[in-house]
Amino acid sequence: MSQQPAILDSIIKQFMYYRTLGEKAMRQLEPEQWFVSPNEDSNSIAVIVKHLHGNMLSRWTDFLTSDGEKEWRNRDDEFEDDTADPEQVWQRWQQGWDCLIQTLEHMQPEQLEQIIYIRNEGHTALEAINRQLCHYPYHVGQIVYIAKMLKHGSWDSLSIPKRQSNDYNEKKFAAPPVRRHFTEEV
């Protein structure tokens, strides 16, 4: 990543931050908890991962050369709870994120203005990236929220723990100013 131009490096760091949050949340659970749905109108973590996987493979495979909604994608199927295999869930998670990151690592800054299509609607590559940079954190937030509920109070905070903001800020402001991406501490 250090060879990437600044904008692409920043984009990759943002995506990696959300990947890490999701992984830290899921690792706090027993794998069988990934299959628990909070209610009949909600999705389990496993189903959310299945949807992210399908979306990521569709969007990031041949990102610059084919429509982001691939003919082989079955979005409706992504919301069917069809597995109880934790290894399959983890493989889907890794495969989706790896596809995304590898695509971004091979991009050049001039390609950010290239027009790409999602469901036959034109976007610049940067607009499409931003679209996914909003979509994926939405679902990672769902994963974190479900995981936190399932932990019943024994949660290891993924950010500044409750009632510790002042202590955190005190430590930050006691140190000299430094230029770095906030994700470097995660």
Score class of each variant (00 low, 15 high):
117 Y>Q: 11
173 F>N: 12
41 D>H: 11
115 I>Q: 14
181 H>C: 03
183 T>R: 04
147 A>E: 07
97 W>G: 03
32 E>Q: 11
173 F>D: 05
110 E>H: 08
86 P>R: 00
148 K>G: 01
80 E>D: 08
64 L>Y: 11
165 S>R: 14
160 I>S: 00
127 E>Q: 15
123 H>K: 13
111 Q>P: 01
70 K>N: 04
81 D>I: 01
177 P>L: 03
76 D>G: 13
62 D>L: 09
79 F>D: 00
144 V>N: 02
20 T>N: 06
179 R>V: 12
37 S>D: 05
115 I>A: 09
33 Q>C: 10
152 H>D: 08
108 Q>C: 08
183 T>C: 08
136 Y>I: 10
120 N>A: 11
44 S>M: 07
116 I>Y: 13
138 Y>A: 07
184 E>I: 02
163 R>S: 09
145 Y>C: 08
87 E>A: 11
69 E>A: 14
132 Q>Y: 06
25 A>L: 10
107 M>V: 12
158 L>V: 02
126 L>Q: 12
165 S>L: 15
156 D>T: 13
56 M>V: 04
146 I>Y: 10
22 G>Q: 01
78 E>F: 10
11 I>K: 04
13 K>D: 04
160 I>P: 00
41 D>Y: 11
119 R>Q: 13
130 N>P: 00
122 G>V: 04
115 I>L: 12
112 L>I: 10
61 T>V: 10
175 A>R: 12
84 A>M: 06
